[in-house]
Amino acid sequence: DNLVIALHSYEPSHDGDLGFEKGEQLRILEQSGEWWKAQSLTTGQEGFIPFNFVAKA
């Protein structure tokens, strides 16, 4: 599955970004460039995340 774990917390800075906490698990929905579309397994919310803040779970 496309699961990743957050290496750092991220505060959203643009509409459509997904904020998350360090250690949170996310499911990657789309990989494109440096911003990936993801869904939080904690909150169920979707949005874009910086790819370098996460690692394969």
Rank of each mutant, 00 (worst) to 15 (best):
A38V: 13
G44T: 04
N2K: 09
E21H: 13
H8L: 12
P12D: 04
Q45L: 13
W36H: 02
H8Y: 15
G23M: 03
S13V: 15
D15H: 11
L3M: 10
N52F: 09
F53M: 11
I28E: 02
G44E: 05
A55Q: 12
I28A: 00
E11A: 14
E30L: 08
P50V: 05
G16S: 09
E46P: 03
Y10N: 02
D1N: 11
G23Y: 05
K22G: 04
G23I: 01
L29R: 03
P50T: 07
P50K: 06
V54P: 02
G33N: 05
Y10M: 04
T43G: 03
S9H: 08
E46D: 06
G47N: 00
I28G: 02
P50L: 06
L7I: 12
W36Q: 00
S32P: 03
V54A: 02
W35G: 07
A6N: 02
E30Y: 10
D17M: 14
S13C: 14
E11Q: 14
I28V: 10
L26A: 00
V54S: 00
E46W: 11
E24Q: 07
L26K: 00
K22T: 06
R27C: 08
E34P: 13
N52Q: 13
L7N: 04
E24K: 00
E24T: 05
G47W: 05
E34L: 14
A6E: 02
A6T: 07
L29N: 02
E21A: 13
G19E: 05
Q39K: 11
L18R: 02
I49T: 00
W36N: 01
Q31W: 12
F53I: 07
W36K: 01
G16C: 12
V4S: 04
E46T: 15
N52W: 15
Q25W: 15
E11S: 13
S32Q: 12
L3R: 06
G33E: 04
N52K: 09
I28K: 00
L7K: 05
T42F: 09
W36F: 08
K22N: 03
E11V: 14
T43Q: 01
H14M: 09
I5Y: 11
G33R: 03
G44Y: 07
F51Q: 11
L29P: 00
S9P: 07
K22V: 09
S32M: 11
G33Y: 04
D1P: 09
A57P: 13
P50H: 08
R27A: 06
E46S: 12
G19H: 08
G33T: 04
F51M: 13
L26E: 04
L7V: 08
S13E: 14
F53K: 07
L29W: 04
G33V: 03
K22E: 10
G44K: 07
F51I: 09
E11K: 14
Q39Y: 09
S13R: 15
A38G: 05
Q31N: 11
S32L: 12
S40C: 06
V4N: 01
V54R: 00
H8N: 08
G19W: 06
E24D: 11
V54F: 07
S13A: 14
S13L: 15
G44R: 06
Q25D: 03
T43D: 04
Q45D: 10
I28F: 00
L29D: 04
G47M: 03
V54L: 05
G33D: 05
F20M: 05
E30I: 09
L29F: 06
H8P: 00
A38P: 01
Q25C: 15
Y10C: 06
L29H: 03
E21Q: 13
Q31H: 10
G16L: 09
E30M: 08
F20P: 00
D15G: 09
E30N: 08
E46Q: 13
F48A: 05
A6G: 05
G23W: 05
P12T: 06
E11H: 15
N2R: 09
D1T: 09
Q45M: 12
S32Y: 13
L7S: 04
R27H: 07
K22D: 03
A55H: 10
F51Y: 13
Q45I: 10
I49M: 01
W36R: 04
S32D: 12
Q45C: 09
L29C: 06
E21V: 14
S13G: 10
D17I: 08
A57T: 12
Q31C: 15
D15A: 13
V54G: 02
P12Y: 05
N2L: 14
W35A: 06
T43N: 07
F53W: 08
I5T: 08
G16P: 02
H14P: 02
D17R: 10
G19P: 10
A57D: 11
L26H: 01
G23F: 05
D17E: 15
N2I: 12
E34H: 14
E21F: 11
L41E: 05
V54H: 02
S13Y: 11
Q45R: 14
F51E: 07
Q39T: 07
A55E: 13
D15E: 13
P50A: 03
F51C: 14
F20R: 01
